[in-house]
Design a binder for these strands. Structure first.
Lengths: 194, 194
DNA sequence: GCTTGAATTGAACACGCGTTCAGATACCGT
DNA sequence: ACGGTATCTGAACGCGTGTTCAATTCAAGC
């Protein structure tokens, strides 16, 4: 098979995903051609099909692996809802700032997934939201948090945290950990008892 | 010229914008062809060029008019930073929930603008952000608001408010004004003195 | 009913797309 | 040095794209 040995395959395979990632993030899935990806890898378009069945699989696997990674790199640390929420918020920001391209694609290219692929991604996304919701629900039950609606608070907190990717650039006025701390403070205040 | 009289022109012209809006929002600018738009209007592709110079202008004018509208339908009402922030937040949510397609396009299709068009849209967007920032800055100076960084708070509040469009659907568990009030409460707490 | 000009068609243009595949090439174990 | 196979090329396929334009249809004024 194609994926096993040979010196080229060990670099070409991953390179395709890297370049697809970069190009999809920069110009979008629909606006990126297989020929462009191939050129970026340094190969002819036909060679891509030794590593991927089609263009759609490239997008889907990027998104699926991203979400699986997001889910597997964080588990509730314990220590009560407040500590867990802080950990969640800081991890979310750190993760998103470390992988801006992946995050961008995961939010922008949902429309370009086939219905079956979309369903898979959607389910992973909901898993992630449910983790935050569980924290908020526990915190409200414990009287630590106060919000009119837990589900809305979940969505609002995720929107707020994810928004950091739209403006943050390395080398700017604030460091990543500055941003992390400032955002966490806003999240905490938004859901805490007044 | 084409735009003046005749019974068809009075309906075909606006119809093109409506259908382009719907299709761009549903499937994206790049994935929508002029032939699809024409079919949705009930006309051949060539006829579109009596009303628009090209496809790009369709996208640009949609976004430009949307942002101009957003800017012109809200002016600071006075009454102090807290009252102004509430008015801003409620207006933002109301406006965004009333025009989900336009809002979606304005956030998703920025990449598909030519550089010149992008610059125009970007400037309008910044105008809008600056209005919120002015409120927050005044509130902090007055000791009503407390946030570590005004610019970050501006971006965070906009992310939080805009996020409502990703999940809200009419006929759901909560009405628009419910959502408006719940979101406003979170915004208020996030930026207020603890 | 004829003339006029706007509104629209439908075919054509050059081009880029995703994907396939027979043939060439490069590399490895022996 | 050779055989085998993993890797890649380059051309081709059918199709859809944005846009143009001569020719046609349509609606209204006289």
């Amino acid at each position: 098979m194609a994926r096993t040995q040979g010196s080229h395959a060990q670099t070409t395979g991953p390179k395709i995903r890297d370049m697809a990632l970069r190009l999809f993030a920069q110009q979008g899935y629909a606006a990126t051609s297989m020929r462009q990806i191939a050129a970026a890898v340094g190969v002819q378009a036909g060679a891509l099909y030794l590593y991927t069945p089609d263009k759609q699989a490239l997008l889907f696997e990027l998104m699926r692996d991203h979400l699986n990674d997001l889910l597997s790199t964080w588990t509730p640390p314990g220590g009560g809802p407040m500590a867990e929420l802080e950990d969640f918020a800081r991890h979310h920001i750190r993760y998103h700032l470390d992988r801006p391209d992946l995050v961008f694609i995961a939010y922008m290219e949902l429309r370009n997934l086939t219905p079956e692929n979309f369903a898979v991604i959607e389910a992973l996304r909901r898993d992630y939201e449910n983790r935050l919701e569980a924290i908020l629900r526990a915190g409200r039950a414990a009287g630590i948090f106060a919000m009119a609606d837990t589900k809305l608070a979940t969505m609002a907190v995720i929107s707020l945290l994810t928004g950091v990717t739209t403006w943050f650039r390395d080398g700017g006025r604030l460091s990543r950990s500055d941003v992390e701390t400032i955002y966490w403070e806003m999240v905490r205040k938004a859901v805490s008892v007044p």
